[in-house]
């Protein structure tokens, strides 16, 4: 058990029957030596996000989730299928794939999170390299990167890139923010 004051981002706490991953925890001192903790939580079963507030001494059961390194194999509607090094296959529902879909391609290495034997979340590498499939023609000379234009990658996802990036270029994208990092 942990009290709310001890809960940190990344912890998984049980709220009722729902495992909730803590995305953010902010501690504030209230009155008469009492404190509150504001938490941003994501339900690992439903993927639903919520903001909550707890007294700092509220008790939570915390859980350790199993994780496994896998690669993306294929889409078998409506499940996304991943495979580990021993060729075991794991299905992930589309609702739990939302943040990963823009970067998904065959062989993508990532980490699956399991709750009670069920794959409930996918964790991408912090950055991926993808080819620009279409963008307006490159503008030579402007290397500042301050002015941007949209660039599409194979998944259809659009990234704001500097003007000098052209179709066919390989670019590195931060998967946490969806932002362009550099041309590779």
């Amino acid at each position: 058990m942990k009290i709310a004051q001890e809960v940190r981002a990344g912890n998984v706490i049980m709220v009722g029957k729902d495992p909730m991953v803590v995305q953010k925890a902010e501690f504030s001192k209230s009155g008469r030596n009492a404190s509150v903790v504001k938490m941003k939580l994501r339900n690992l079963l439903s993927s639903g996000g919520t903001e909550s507030v707890y007294r700092a001494d509220e008790k939570f059961e915390t859980i350790q989730l199993d994780k496994k390194e896998v690669t993306y194999s294929y889409f078998a509607d409506p499940m996304y299928v991943f495979m580990d090094a021993e060729f075991n296959q794991y299905d992930v529902e589309k609702d739990n794939m939302q943040d990963a879909l823009p970067y998904l391609e065959d062989g993508l290495a990532c980490e699956l999170t399991f709750y009670e034997g069920r794959a409930i979340a996918i964790e991408l590498p912090n950055s991926v390299v993808r080819e620009v499939t279409y963008t307006e023609p490159a503008v030579k000379g402007d290397t500042s990167g301050k002015v941007t234009k949209p660039a599409r990658i194979a998944s259809g996802f659009e990234v704001a890139v500097p003007l000098f990036v052209g179709t066919g270029d390989q670019i590195e994208i931060d998967t946490r923010t969806g932002e362009y990092k550099r041309r590779v």
């Binding site: 919520t50 707890y54 059961e61």
Partner: peptide
């Protein structure tokens, strides 16, 4: 809760606290 003039109050006023137990 307690009265305070601090800015963080606005960010938590009216938030739910779904009980863990």
């Amino acid at each position: 809760e307690y009265l305070s003039a601090e800015a963080w109050i606005e960010g938590v006023h009216g938030l739910p606290s779904r009980q863990p137990q």
